[in-house]
Design a protein around this nucleic acid. Structure first.
Length: 898
RNA sequence: GCGGGGGUACCCGAGCGGUCAAAGGGGCACGGCUAAGGACCGUGUGGCUUAGUGCCUUCCUGGGUUCGAAUCCCAGCCCCCGCACCA
């Protein structure tokens, strides 16, 4: 595609920005600090795709805008450099993860620099270096000291042939990604962080941060707080207690069976040596192979098995059969449930399948329930029946009463449960932060002392695809116990990479700091992050973990705040051909393709323009052309009219100038608001319109040079956060001083209503003068002059009649509003409805005169106001299509109004 | 299953109670410019109409609330995304 050679400009201005050093951020300036942060990328060999660029275009736009608004902006970039793909690459192509990662970082960084993003590169970090991960280890030790890090058994995916643990991602339809053997579930001792301790604070903290509602909701659901009752059941002929959690203690008397999660540790103890043992074992194995989502799905088959044991009902003393079943999860609650088929659908289906009795304990007030005839469980409210002393209560009352009763007999307690589970951070992988723990036969689990940090991740390892390379590396494993100095073995698990990303935003504040994870003064100055931007796919995990870390560090006295991200924005995903743009679908459009063809500003502008930033975006090569054309048009506007732009004082002379100014100010105001509100697409649309108007102005007659020059320069400033390179080039041509990027954002003036009104009028008059009539209010003091097309006369008459019928005030309002193009009166007007209905005669206080009386249009002229002795506002109703027309023809000759 | 988000003209997408036949862009058509094409500029782009204009039918489907619904409510259909070892 032909057009201006933007690529040349890109290099030129990137060099100049570098020289001018305008993007570096230093603490302690008098300006207000502003911290803009994008979620740092995982450096994959695939490089950047349009999803990344969309993210960065938004961040850069905000950073540039804030800088121009006079903030001291910190806008850093770094790399989330540990992770599985690097290790997979090592297994597949014998590249060391370090090299893979460093190459990937180099590639991505080149891309980012080519994008002209205004990062402060002096703050760059990468998490895979000891200078960084040392602090992961340090934090881990702090957590450990306070009991926030602990070890327990947890299931992992295990490939029996590769003898290795598999990530969920490496499990494809229940099979190993490399050798296709069936994946098993195995329990391993693993490290956890006690995020559940913060469940309540993670929940309540949401109310004080400016985040999208949907993300807050997702976090709330993820935490999943629910109030209920823990009930303890004795088991017949056993010392064990069966504890359950339920939100429905009111159904206590309707229990007809109990269910354990198959992996519950008590299950095997209860069947050991009985005739059920073999069957139970077999069942457990088959369930373990199912995916978790399948297991809990309501449609999927409920499978269960009686284990030959009975629990004792705490109130009635009845014996209740105990089952195990696939729909009960170990992770939630206590790993066991009470089952009340009459009032829970899953229990109902299970009971029907296995012929278990159904007992109604909550009666439907509208239609009596018959346990034999019920088509499904009754889950609504009702009156207690078959429940001993609780009969007759409403079931909602019974929840409290029964819990109290259970507490009084020592068989239960009101508790709060969370869906949130502790954060499993152990990974049986090489490419991550070593967990700083050693195991000593004498002293047990011993943390590595802080002075010995970092525990360095060795580089001379072999990647076979079998097991964690660290686990078979004797030189790494062999350690000295820090306590007794005896022989000890090092922990070979590494940390989840989400640990790295849980505090990187703190590291940016003082990236070179050696003596601590971060410099407190710098953190105090910059944090919390003012604007965080990233993909919605991180709505729960990363954002939850980072909040948890911040709260924990706050409680350790290291931070003075406990929410890391004040304002959050989630951009939508970029699609192409119906799929998320990603290498695995082969639908990636790279930066290079676009920048070669159109230049980088085009790509940035397009990504921000084509859809609202939060919605998903379908990539279209065609749409890019629109952005490209616009940049060309704008550039040409400046280039071709460069002789028309003077500097110096600009004063509006005549109505065309006033209209120009008015439009300009209005555009500055709306564009600023729209940038702040993440409505980049609308902002660009407005700039396009402004550019169209300026170009029409330049063509349509006498040009007021200082004014035009000013207007063009303001337009360039508005463009510069979106298309920074082109903007610089235009700025230079238009006589701007210095760099636009370093210029001061223009002030939004008040819109000149009168000018706008006249503009509308002129375009109206241009088409036909004689069919205009005026409407004058009766009271001379507040007379408005309203110009409206003649047809409205009839309409108003009709309305007046209607209003008298006191029915259709709405129509009157609508019509009145259509007269008032510039201030939507919708709400104010609707307040008038009752008044209008009460006194319809007040509406026609507008006197309508026909066009004959409004003989000549040039009545609108200087001095009109004094002649009438009133303030004259000119307001025009026009078809919206004449909006378009109006910027095409600003000012027909012959009518000049001041 | 649990949770989040959508369905707007030929296409992509704004709009989210009244100034809405619905921004902006793409595509298409016509006109201008050109030797010609591209690029560029202008106009138009639901239907029927007018000198100006007006009327009718539209925002997934079906109901409802309202003086008034693309916008709010209910039901249905369809699509997309996340779900704890990918980051």
């Amino acid at each position: 595609m032909k057009g201006v050679d933007f690529q040349r400009m890109e290099r030129k201005w990137q060099l100049r920005w570098g020289k001018a050093k305008i993007f570096g951020a230093k603490e302690g300036s008098k300006k207000k600090p502003y911290y803009v942060l994008e979620m740092f990328p995982y450096p994959s060999a695939a490089g950047l795709h349009m999803g990344h660029i969309r993210n960065y275009a938004m961040g850069d736009c905000i950073a540039r805008y804030r800088r121009m608004r006079g903030f001291n902006v910190m806008y850093p970039m770094g790399y989330d450099a540990f992770g599985l793909p690097a290790e997979n690459a090592a297994i597949k192509s014998k590249t060391h993860p370090k090299k893979y990662t460093e190459d990937a970082i180099a590639g991505i960084k080149r891309n980012q620099q080519a994008l002209g993003l205004s990062y402060d590169w002096a703050r760059e970090i990468a998490t895979c270096y000891p200078e960084y991960y040392k602090w992961n280890q340090f934090f881990f030790l702090q957590f450990f000291k306070r009991g926030l890090a602990y070890k327990k058994l947890a299931p992992v995916n295990w490939c029996p042939r590769c003898k290795t643990v598999l990530a969920n991602e490496q499990v494809e339809q229940g099979k190993c990604w490399r050798c296709e053997s069936h994946v098993e579930i195995k329990n391993l001792e693993q490290w956890f962080l006690r995020i559940t301790k913060y469940a309540d604070r993670l929940l309540s903290g949401l109310s004080k941060i400016d985040w999208p509602e949907n993300v807050k909701r997702m976090q709330k659901n993820w935490i999943g707080r629910s109030e209920g009752t823990r009930i303890d059941f004795k088991i017949k002929d056993s010392e064990k207690t069966l504890s359950v959690f339920t939100t429905r203690p009111d159904t206590l008397f309707g229990i007809t069976f109990m269910v354990y999660a198959p992996e519950h540790p008590d299950v095997m103890d209860l069947v050991r040596g009985t005739r059920y043992e073999d069957k139970v074992k077999k069942f457990i194995r088959s369930v373990m192979l199912e995916e978790r989502f399948e297991r809990t799905s309501e449609e999927s088959e409920k499978e269960g098995l009686f284990i030959g044991r009975h629990a004792i009902h705490p109130v009635t003393g009845d014996e209740i059969p105990i089952y195990i079943a696939n729909f009960v999860l170990m992770e939630y609650g206590t790993g066991a449930i009470i089952a009340v088929p009459a009032h829970d659908q899953r229990d109902f289906m299970f009971a029907k399948k296995y012929g278990i009795p159904i007992k109604v304990v909550i009666q439907n007030p509208y239609r009596e329930l018959d346990p034999d005839e019920m088509p499904r469980a009754y889950c609504d409210e009702g009156t207690m029946v078959n429940s001993g002393e609780f009969d007759g209560l409403s079931n909602t009352e019974a929840i409290e009463k029964i819990t109290e009763h259970l507490e009084s007999i020592g068989r239960g307690k009101a508790t709060v449960e969370y869906k949130l589970r502790d954060w499993l951070i152990s990974r049986q992988r090489y490419w991550g932060t070593p967990i700083p723990i050693v195991y000593c036969d004498k002293c047990g689990t011993v943390p590595v002392p802080e002075r010995d940090l970092p525990v360095i991740l060795p580089t001379n390892v072999r990647f076979t695809g079998r097991g964690n390379p660290l686990a078979s590396m004797e030189s790494y494993i062999k350690a000295k116990c820090p306590k007794c100095e005896g022989p000890a073995r090092r922990e070979t698990d590494t940390m989840d990479t989400f640990v790295d990303s849980s505090w990187y935003f703190l590291r940016y504040c003082s990236p070179k700091q050696k003596s601590s994870a971060f410099d407190r003064k710098a953190v105090k100055y910059w944090m919390p992050v003012d604007q965080y931007i990233g993909g919605v796919e991180h709505a729960v995990m990363h954002l939850m973990y980072a909040r948890f870390f911040t709260m924990a560090l706050h409680d350790m006295g290291m931070l003075g705040f406990d929410e890391p991200f004040q304002r959050l924005f989630n951009q939508g995903i970029v699609y192409k051909d119906g799929h998320k743009m990603s290498k695995s679908f082969g639908n990636v459009v790279t930066q290079l393709e676009i920048s070669k063809k159109y230049g980088i500003d085009t790509a940035r502008l397009f990504l921000l323009f084509v859809a609202s930033p939060e919605s998903q975006l379908e990539w279209s090569d065609k749409g890019v052309q629109g952005a490209f054309r616009f940049l060309n048009r704008a550039f040409k506007l400046v280039h071709e009219n460069r002789g028309m732009m003077a500097k110096g004082k600009c004063r509006a002379a005549g109505v065309r100038d006033r209209i120009l100014l008015s439009r300009l100010y209005a555009a500055v105001g709306t564009v600023s608001e729209q940038i702040e509100g993440f409505q980049f697409n609308l902002a660009i649309s407005n700039i396009m319109e402004l550019a169209g108007y300026l170009s029409a102005y330049a063509k349509s007659g006498k040009v007021n040079r200082p004014l035009f020059g000013e207007a063009v320069r303001v337009m360039i400033q508005l463009m510069s956060p979106f298309a920074p390179h082109v903007a610089e080039e235009m700025w230079e041509k238009a006589g701007g001083s210095g760099l636009v990027s370093a210029s001061r954002w223009p002030a939004a003036g008040k819109p000149d209503k009168r000018a706008v009104a006249i503009e509308g009028l002129l375009s109206q008059l241009g088409s036909d003068i004689e069919h205009v009539l005026r409407i004058v209010r009766k009271k001379p003091k507040s007379m408005d002059l309203i110009v409206a097309p003649a047809w409205k006369y009839e309409l108003f008459r009709a309305l007046r009649r209607k209003a008298r019928d006191s029915r259709d005030a709405g129509m009157v309002l609508k019509a009145l509003m259509s007269e008032n193009r510039f201030r939507p009166h919708g709400k104010e007007m609707s307040r008038l409805v009752p008044a209008l209905l009460k006194n319809p005669d007040r509406i026609p206080a507008l006197i309508l005169t026909q066009h004959q009386e409004f003989s000549v249009i040039d009545e609108i002229r200087p001095g009109l106001e004094s002649e009438h002795g009133c303030k004259v506002t000119v307001q025009v109703a026009e078809k919206s299509s004449s909006n378009k027309a109006s910027h095409a023809a600003p000012g027909k000759p012959g009518i000049e109004v001041r």
